[in-house]
Design a protein around this nucleic acid. Sequence first.
RNA 1: GGAUGUUUAGCUCAGCUGGGAGAGCAUUACCCUUACAAGGUAGAGGUCGGGGGUUCGAUCCCCUCAACAUCCACCA
Length: 867
Amino acid sequence: MTLSTRYNPKEVEKGKYEFWKNKGYFKAGENLTKTRFSMVIPPPNVTGKLHLGHAANTTIQDIIARYKKAQGYDVLWIPGMDHAGIATQAKVEAKLREEGISRYDLGREKFLEKAWEWKREYAESIHAQWAVMGLSLDYSRERFTLDEGLNKAVRKVFVDLYNKGLIYQGERIINWDPVQRTALSNIEVIYKQDKGEFYYFKYHLVGKEDFLVVATTRPETMFGDTCVIVNPKDNRYKHLIGEYCINPANGDKLPIIGDEYVDIEFGTGAMKCTPAHDPNDFKIGEKYGFKPIICMNEDATMNSICGKYEGLDRFECRKQLVEQIKLDGNLIKIEEITHEVGHSERSDAVVEPYLSKQWFVKMRPLADQALKNQTGNKTITFYPERFNKVFTSWMEKVDDWCISRQLWWGHRIPAYYHKVTNEVRVSIEPPDDMENWKQDEDVLDTWFSSALWPFTTLGWPEKTSDFKHYFPLDLMVTAYDIIFFWVSRMIFQSLEFTSEPPFKKVLIHGLIRDSQGRKMSKSLGNGVDPFEVIEKYGADALRYFITTTSTPGQDSRYIEEKVESSANYINKIWNAARFVLGVLPIDFKPCAINVHDLNPLDKFIMAKLESTIEAVTYNMERYELGNASTHLYNFVYDDFCSWYLEMAKVTLNGENIKAKENTYQVLFRVLKAIIMMIYPYTPFVSEELYQNLPEHKESIMLESYPTIDKSFVDQGAIEEVETLFKLIKDIRNYKVENDLAPNAKIKLYIFDPKRIYQKYVPYLERFTFASEIIFEDNEDNLKNHILFIYDLAQFALEDNIDKEKIILKLTSELEHVEKEIQRAEGMLANPNFVTKAPKNKVDAEKEKLLNHQNHRKILLEKIAKLK
RNA sequence: GGAUGUUUAGCUCAGCUGGGAGAGCAUUACCCUUACAAGGUAGAGGUCGGGGGUUCGAUCCCCUCAACAUCCACCA
């Protein structure tokens, strides 16, 4: 197989995924003696196409999975999807609406059939998308949040919590979504700044000629008013406590109550109380024994108590009612205000606080358990750490969780009501005499089943070998926006039901925004389809881009140029590989390298490789994917491509057979290590290159990650080579500064009594275009030349430039050196530094000082000679 | 009102426990040098948001101010 001159992602990516999958490489548990590493995918909703956020989230996991596998772990990564109750039901309903039918026309059974059809269709599409991205998921263990096993687990959890008193049914003010016609939990409500009106109405006092003014933003709820409240300390109103006033909406007589809850400063200081439509009012209503009056239907139209407004939408009612009150002469004024209005996360409908009978999870005991866990020895480690605080502070003040939803698509609540006695029975299986019972119509919040994901995917509540072997999970990777929805709930449910945290570590990543930093959304139309990007640049480039351009926990922007530059980087590696594979002899056999046989250039690149492996591994272990990639990137571009490969060309053109053989070994070894380190990020192209290596295994997925071998580090060789590189750069620079062509011929003198640089003559010829290289043993003979002075040797070019210019250049260099000497001396003279700083820092500083002093001496001598 | 994050080159962002400021894109000059022009070589471009403090030394630690962003809680 020969490689094309350009990296072509389409060709490279073709067929690879099927190959891996069919070979069974994604399957865990093939060798249980290996240390395990387990993860589950955050299940995407079966509502549509995957977006960039999914791509980022899953790529991070895939990188870690592939890295761990290459390191010899038994990696389990379980795929799955979420039924996404409200979201999916909304989509299915929308689709039905296009056909002109509603879910009520179909009925529950038929509707669920449609929903399952939808699920199958989208599951297939999601599978295809995972494949395009190259995710190494173990499909033999795939789960769905609404599958049978999950359903059994959900029922068990519900019943157990109920029996422990941690689930209860209650009549409470909940957030009602009138479009979806379901209750929501508090965190499914999004508060947005909305413009509204503050209406000031006259409430006439009963039996008096006077009135008081009550202000409200929600006149339509006045039909549910039970009283008017004032602060007993408020001198304006305290004499009215115990009196009655008239509700201007319906003429009802309302008692005037005194309660300190009312803020004297706010509004008019007199507040209407609507227990059935406001959580605070509900508490007050309870306190004073007022029966809540519901004035709306489930779709937020006004109900029968509202007289002529019955059947009107709440906002239309508001309009007409205000008009009526105005006609009655009871409107004082309308004030424009901006206030926070709750919207449904899914439908965006304005949420109606609504008194309703729902099921709740009693959170306090569960939250406390979770908080306690974070102080014990099974603490879940958050990456980055600060998200632990986000988690704990939410847990500290969490409200009870409303878990019932008036939907059809979801886990049906295992509660049964006796048709005659109204007895409530909560049980995993329906009562034997089911004909006498009626099951609760509602389903559970999607997140109720998602919360069980880390252990139900492993077969819980059955005592499966997977559960025993892979639980708790080693890592969970998810974005910060679902810490409350998901992470925290997994934690408390797991602690409650398995007595273990669900995972040991949780890696929190940010969101991907558009190039202007805005959140991607349908309404803005600024979403980026990852599969269009892949079409253009390849999955590897997208994977590299999304996982390397940001820092953990931080949002990042989608910048197309960066995807392009990722593809360019891949192309760079591609071509470096092409070169190496092109020069290796046909009969090349990788073999062990003896470090003593290597030339300094080989030693240099091997040492650099070792430190790169070390840095990459260090950062991979901490999930710093960006840092790890930067280290590799620098190594690939600078050390390997710019220097070593170019130098190797000279070696390979030479006559020294042994040196060539060593270089082949080194080239191969470095290339392979590069491929292995980039592999988790860019598996497709890495596999392609790997398959072209001599003596490769069946797949890169069976290959091991490079390990650190310090034996190659030879400080002397590195110094020698770095001086060589510095000279080459200085000469290139000199040519530019003096308007010489890069390939201008030069005559190079070397003052190097030890003849260290003798062996580099062919390299210097190629890199500096030296036509002649002369070893000069009399330093004085160089005094009229342009000098390059290093610690190991001096180099000189013949030049006609005047002495003044040379002196000027040397003097400025001297100044620089003087400064450095001052700095180093200052540091070393400081007892605090010498005694407190780490020894290696002190030693490094001492060495720097010596070098600088030496350098200064040379410069001074040179200047003296020129004068 | 609480909390968190951000502020570094023209743009987008890195910068690991304080020890000489980096990348990509854009930009300038010169190179089609036999792996790569989706490239190479050499540059230019930063009082590291402002002000204090700790330290021999601060982009990094502490205090403070400002701007922006996000989350949480919210008075009808």
